[in-house]
Amino acid sequence: MSFYAVFGHPIAHSRSPQIHRLFAQQEGRDLVYQAILAPLDDFPGAVRSFLAAGGVGANVTVPFKAQAFAMADQCTTRAQAAHAVNTLFWHEGTLLGDNTDGVGLIRDITQLQGMDLRGKRILLLGAGGAAQGVLTPLWAQHPKSLTVANRTLHNAKVLQDAFPSIDLRISTLGDLDDDYDVVINATSGSLQGIDLPVATSVLGRAEFVYDMMYAPQLTPFLQAARQAGCLKVADGLGMLVAQAAASYALWHGFEPDVAMVVDAVRANMEQA
């Protein structure tokens, strides 16, 4: 029997099993999908055990996306662009690595949130793996400009050098003094309760503020944006579901209804 999983550390909080079960219900498929706590010192061993037991597809979350990229026999173009893998697929004796984070973010912003990114001045906060995974898809939307702001300029510069085909501007969080139409938080600050040193004027002048993190209520970052005067904000639940849908489509050839699952998961979060 084939089965599926999400690997992470920690992983107990993951909503991926619920999301994929809802996708399977839409399709009418019997699905076995579990959350696996992979040891920090042996992610490859955990994946090999999973495959040996009949595993076919897996999602990969922090902190293993770079290791998944290194482990894959073959990577899709978007995984190569992101230098990270969040989806593994054991297919015809080959371990395929994909990255659906970027497509998930773009689908949420442009379709579910109705925000056209063409010609927009986009500010991406953070220079870690989450930012790295979405740079190329964001640039493909043809924004007027794309800026990465980070606590340290060094890490932003590393990201800039890693993507020479993108006209990427960089800044520290404290030095932002420009107007941006769209602000995207790619840091984990909302989960850790850390306030980002971003001027409230930057958030207040934005047309749209987005946080890749999600919570039953507005994240602290989105609360700050609302208080600063931004009228349109959204968290990353839609991104989570949309990237999962792209993984599901890769494995099963079925395109789930993302909006329906977002609503169901949101309702479940609010009731918890």
Rank of each mutant, 00 (worst) to 15 (best):
A140Y: 02
P17C: 01
L173T: 12
R151Y: 08
A215H: 14
L117E: 06
G129R: 08
G114Y: 03
P143Y: 07
G133T: 01
G236I: 01
I11Y: 04
S145Y: 07
R121F: 07
L123S: 06
A72M: 11
Q132N: 08
Q113V: 07
Q132H: 09
I36E: 06
Q25W: 02
D42A: 15
F163V: 10
G104C: 09
R78M: 11
Q67R: 12
F208K: 00
A149R: 01
F3L: 10
G97A: 06
T61V: 07
F50A: 04
N150D: 05
L105S: 05
G253A: 12
V47S: 05
I19R: 00
V85Y: 06
A215W: 12
L51F: 10
Y248E: 00
M115G: 02
G204N: 03
Q111G: 00
R169M: 05
D179C: 09
D235V: 06
L237A: 04
G54C: 12
V60M: 03
T200N: 12
R78G: 00
G193N: 10
H20P: 02
S165D: 15
G253N: 12
E270L: 14
H83D: 10
D263R: 12
L31M: 06
Q26D: 13
W251P: 08
L191K: 09
E207F: 04
A242H: 00
F163A: 02
S171Q: 09
V56L: 10
V158C: 06
A249L: 12
G174L: 04
F3H: 15
A70V: 02
A46P: 08
D30S: 13
D116Q: 13
Q25K: 14
A131W: 00
L125Y: 02
G104N: 06
L231H: 10
A140W: 00
A225C: 07
A249K: 11
R205F: 05
R226H: 11
R226W: 02
S165F: 09
A79R: 09
Q217W: 08
M269V: 13
Q18H: 12
A140V: 02
I122D: 02
A162S: 15
G119Q: 09
D98C: 06
G189T: 08
I11Q: 08
Q132Y: 00
V85T: 05
Q113D: 14
F69V: 07
G55E: 02
L159F: 12
M260Y: 03
G45H: 08
G28C: 13
R169K: 14
Y33T: 03
M212V: 11
G8Q: 00
D177N: 15
L153I: 14
T136K: 11
H91Q: 15
N155F: 06
Q34K: 10
T187G: 07
S188F: 08
A186E: 09
Q141R: 06
H13W: 03
A70R: 14
A82Q: 07
P164F: 01
L203R: 03
T172V: 08
M269L: 15
E270D: 13
F89T: 00
G189R: 01
I36V: 15
G97E: 05
L117W: 07
M260Q: 13
T172C: 13
